[in-house]
Design a protein around this nucleic acid. Structure first.
Ligand SMILES: [Mn+2]
Ligand SMILES: [Mn+2]
Ligand SMILES: [Zn+2]
Ligand SMILES: [Zn+2]
Lengths: 146, 146
DNA sequence: CTACGTATTGAAAATGGTTTTCAATATCAA
DNA sequence: TTGATATTGAAAACCATTTTCAATACGTAG
């Protein structure tokens, strides 16, 4: 999976007349092996350890690039940071976000997706993408809360 | 409706040990009579005309205050601005947002809401609030697009 | 393999929406 | 009316992200 992603990036870069660089490969490697829903700063800190000479701006630039290349999804939750998650396939999912501990749970629900299409159709609307986020308390935080 | 909202604000302010001011009332008046989903700057410009001495920061502060008072809903779509809409009752709605012309269509769908609760329940999650936004092309823009 | 045009990089400065600071002013309970 | 303090307007600060710019790395033509 790791090697494949680097190849995927190379192909995208070549196709766009862009260049493969060691920084881009290194950032991608760390990105994939790190946890999901990382902010640019979180990734920067993780990249810094093995590759101390990589700059902040390059991490920002590379994350945007990965999103364009289809290797990452860009997410903006309500915490003021743009977050990215590695995207292996074309599958889509939405999120439950704990307002107390920050935990993020992913889910898919094709019935909701279908109903969204119904809503769109009724309004002569063509959906390109959507965002569904449920904010509240996760199981753990509900227990601790009492 | 207009007078009632000003009263509602006064009651909230009194209850919180805060003060009623002419600026707050004036901003609320303009806010209600203006269109929906306004950014702070849009409201500021509208407020400026009848009340040229009101400051930028006061508009920002008052919008946050109206949200706390339950008189406004805060929305963050994907355009980088926080937007506010007047909230008369406790009803909830979601949005279709045209990526071409910026049109915003509101909708309610209780079947989707119910399914969201199902998802939450399955994940031992207690939903406090949620965000559902469908981005794409509105009817008009679909026609023009061909 | 080498040279050259240019894409990319890192550091620092800039950007832009929003928030904070601060001295002057307004509110309101006593 | 007075005094304690909440609020205001203007300007500065904040802060995530983007841009600038000179130095460097990439990759292809030769
Ligand atoms: Mn996710
Ligand atoms: Mn709305
Ligand atoms: Zn939690
Ligand atoms: Zn449109």
């Amino acid at each position: 999976m790791r090697k494949n992603a680097v190849e995927q990036l190379s192909e995208y870069l070549a196709g766009q007349g862009l260049r493969s660089t060691t920084q881009r490969d290194q950032i991608l490697q760390v990105f994939i092996s790190a946890g999901r829903h990382l902010s640019a700063e979180e990734l920067y800190l993780r990249v810094k350890k093995p590759h101390p000479n990589i700059g902040y701006a390059t991490v920002y630039r590379t994350l945007k690039l990965l999103a364009e290349a289809g290797l990452a999804d860009e997410r903006r939750f309500e915490d003021g940071f743009t977050r990215y998650e590695y995207k292996a396939s074309d599958d889509h999912h939405d999120h439950l976000i704990c307002t107390k501990c920050g935990a993020i749970i992913e889910f898919e629900n094709e019935r909701i997706e279908a109903l969204q299409q119904d809503v769109a159709r009724k309004n002569h609307f063509l959906v390109q993408n959507h965002k569904l986020e449920l904010y509240g308390l996760c199981g753990d935080c509900r227990k601790k809360d009492r």
